[in-house]
Design a binder for these strands. Structure first.
Length: 363
DNA sequence: ATCGTAACGGTTGAG
DNA sequence: AGCTCAACCGTTACG
């Protein structure tokens, strides 16, 4: 690892700032999706935000597939399949039928719904459990976290942002018509909450304290760790909000205040900081207006709303999610308020909007 | 010119 | 405490 004190990000071919190995701040990810929904072409988004077109493509593809603008869970290990419940079931099967084969146990785990096909242990895992754990029948099995687990004590099996739908039910899962998510492939599961714009941006909801990490309900809590990091990145590095400034010191180092740097590529496109006064210059393509579904504070600042088509969707959490993906269609710069990335003079090259940052397209 | 994607070097966090 | 591993990241280059 590099000397962190010297880690201030790198500059890509478009003049944009990035940190190798780390996700783009949510503000930029959000802007990418917003611009795409306004009909801006990915290549133009790439140039405007100075994010590589590969990254724009990736984020939009992910959004189209999952509805999420958030990066995936980085690091960690796969969820353990040999949960205490599974071990308990195996133990039960073995007790009832000492001669049972591991593959029979596996079949029973599936048949009785203890596991689904995505998390059923392998035969070899079952054998190992039989060998190592079933011998000691007087204690609860150890949890994956190194201490006994009470039956009701549900713990996230993976990075909290991608937690399985265990524990107190979130509003949406379990509702009529909502499939059993544990039976869905990973990429089709509905991860709770982080996909709403309000959650991503850290807008408070009625009754939800600012410090959602500690006091929010299960849905917010599930995303708190990760989102706090991103919020910190945005707040510190991109002026999106000022929440959780006491957290994420590492990322603070990684995402310095580029708004004061000589690389304004991104900061000039980010959303309004919150909480705080309205921006001195409101971007034309991001109107601030009152809405019946507004859940933000009544300070005059309002959430960015997405223009029709694709009306904002009020989520079960009361947040507003980005409307369903729309096909790209050309719009003019005047419509979006963005600088026209497509010069009217076809002979001129596209360059950075204002600064002396070299443009990759000008070679 | 545009866009999808593999390769790459990097970070992260559970085990 | 430090290592390993497998997940993810964004950029770059190629087709």
């Amino acid at each position: 690892m590099m000397n962190m004190e010297q880690t201030f990000g790198e500059v890509n071919q478009l003049g944009g700032v990035f940190v190798n190995g780390r996700p783009l701040p949510n503000a930029i990810r959000l802007r990418i999706v917003e611009l795409a929904q306004l009909g801006i072409r990915p290549c133009d988004i790439s140039r405007q935000l100075r994010v590589s077109h590969g990254c724009v493509s990736k984020i939009l593809a992910r959004y189209n597939e999952t509805g999420s603008i958030l990066p995936g869970a980085i690091g960690g290990s796969k969820p353990r399949v040999t949960t205490p419940e599974v071990v308990k079931a195996i133990k039960k099967y073995k007790t009832l039928d000492p001669g049972i084969f591991a593959w029979e146990i596996r079949d029973r785990l599936l048949a009785e719904g203890v596991c689904d096909k995505y998390n059923v242990p392998s035969v070899s895992s079952i054998s190992r459990i039989l060998r190592n754990k079933i011998g000691n029948t007087t204690q609860l099995p150890d949890s994956p976290y190194g201490h006994p687990v009470k039956p009701e004590q549900h713990r996230p099996l993976y990075n909290p942002i991608y937690t399985y739908p265990v524990g107190p039910p979130a509003p949406a899962p379990g509702a009529p018509g909502v499939p059993n998510q544990s039976q869905l492939p990973m990429h089709m599961r509905h991860w709770p909450s982080p996909h709403t714009v309000s959650d991503i941006l850290g807008f408070p909801r009625p009754g939800v304290p600012i410090n959602a990490n500690e006091q929010a309900g299960p849905v917010s809590g599930a995303i708190s760790n990760e989102s706090a990091r991103y919020q910190t990145q945005m707040g510190e590095g991109y002026g999106l909000n000022h929440m959780n400034q006491m957290q994420g010191q590492t990322d603070k180092a990684k995402y310095p205040d580029v708004s004061q740097s000589s690389l304004p590529a991104v900061s000039s496109f980010v959303s309004t900081p919150y909480p705080g006064p309205p921006p001195p210059q409101t971007m034309a393509y991001m109107p601030y207006h009152q809405s019946p579904t507004t859940v933000g504070p009544t300070t005059g600042w309002q959430q960015p709303r997405f223009p029709s088509p694709g009306a904002p969707v009020t989520t079960s959490e009361g947040g507003i999610s980005i409307p369903a993906p729309l096909p790209f269609k050309p719009v003019t710069a005047a419509q979006t308020g963005l600088e026209d990335t497509k010069p009217h003079n076809p002979t001129s090259k596209v360059g950075p909007p204002t600064s002396d940052i070299p443009s990759a397209s000008s070679s």
